[in-house]
């Protein structure tokens, strides 16, 4: 299923006041795949996503998103990436629907198209009933769902989902996983998913990258990593085993 690369990072580096957050990272994400981005807290996953979005300037190295440099073509890159932040914020005094309408307006969507997409997105994440309540009154999980809806209305070619299932109830988590799979299959969306829930990643990701202390220590299909690290043939393995193996080596 591996086709042509849609995101390519070469020797990507980010230094925050003397502390290297991302260290000469080489990473390739292929079009249409779901890429799992793993690593302990503070490994540099969010920093990497921010550099690929063009929100943070790399200290060194290059990124290309659909062949474009995010620093040179910020609008094109941002228009085609939907970004779900790890600690996303909302305008408290807007309702869910108004928040989505604002995002749609910022993306230059026509009013009519925007309304359709908002309705679709609200239904997809299951917060239609609360759509006209202010965001202040939302629970943690409802905000998370609204955040995902904000990504959906852009209909982006690429989605960066930083901890998308954090705070969701089990039913919503399953629904989210199905939704991501579906988007990928039907709309050929590429998804980069950063998460600490390894069993979810194992369920939906074709390829994963494991990042530890700013370095990408592994990258590839899960089976391949399992063969390399655990040396298993037909034995069942979990992503968690692989991850712990890498983690202990460092």
């Amino acid at each position: 299923m591996a086709q042509e690369p849609i995101i390519e990072a070469v020797q990507l580096t980010k230094v925050y006041n003397g502390h290297t957050a991302v260290d000469h990272l080489d990473l390739t994400v292929y079009g249409g795949e779901i890429f799992g981005f793993l690593g302990p807290n503070g490994a540099g996953k969010t920093t990497t996503l921010l550099m690929m979005l063009g929100l943070t300037e790399p200290t060194g190295g290059t990124v290309r998103v659909m062949g474009l440099d995010p620093a040179r073509h910020p609008l094109e890159v941002k228009a085609s990436i939907g970004y779900l932040q790890e600690n996303m914020g909302f305008y408290r005094d807007l309702t869910g629907r108004q928040s989505l309408a604002y995002i749609a307006e910022l993306n230059g969507l026509e009013r009519k198209i925007a309304q359709e997409r908002i309705q679709e997105a609200l239904e997809a994440v299951g917060i239609t009933a609360a759509a006209d309540k202010k965001v202040v009154t939302y629970s943690r999980g409802m905000r998370q769902r609204l955040g995902i809806a904000e990504v959906l209305i852009k209909k982006p070619r690429i989605a960066f989902l930083d901890e998308p299932t954090l705070g969701l109830d089990p039913e919503a988590t399953n629904r989210m996983i199905e939704l991501i799979k579906d988007l990928c299959r039907r709309h050929e969306m590429t998804v980069v998913l950063s998460s600490h829930f390894l069993n979810q990643i194992q369920k939906i990701c074709q390829r994963v990258g494991i990042m530890i202390e700013g370095k990408l220590v592994a990258q590839g299909p899960i089976e391949q990593l399992a063969r390399e690290k655990l040396g298993v043939g037909d034995r069942t393995y979990t992503l968690e085993e692989i991850y712990m193996q890498y983690f202990q080596e460092h």
């Binding site: 979005l53 914020g89 408290r92 910022l106």
Partner: peptide
């Protein structure tokens, strides 16, 4: 409130 980075990640 975290809305600035959301704003800036729009085109």
């Amino acid at each position: 409130e975290g809305t600035l980075s959301k704003l800036l990640s729009q085109p």
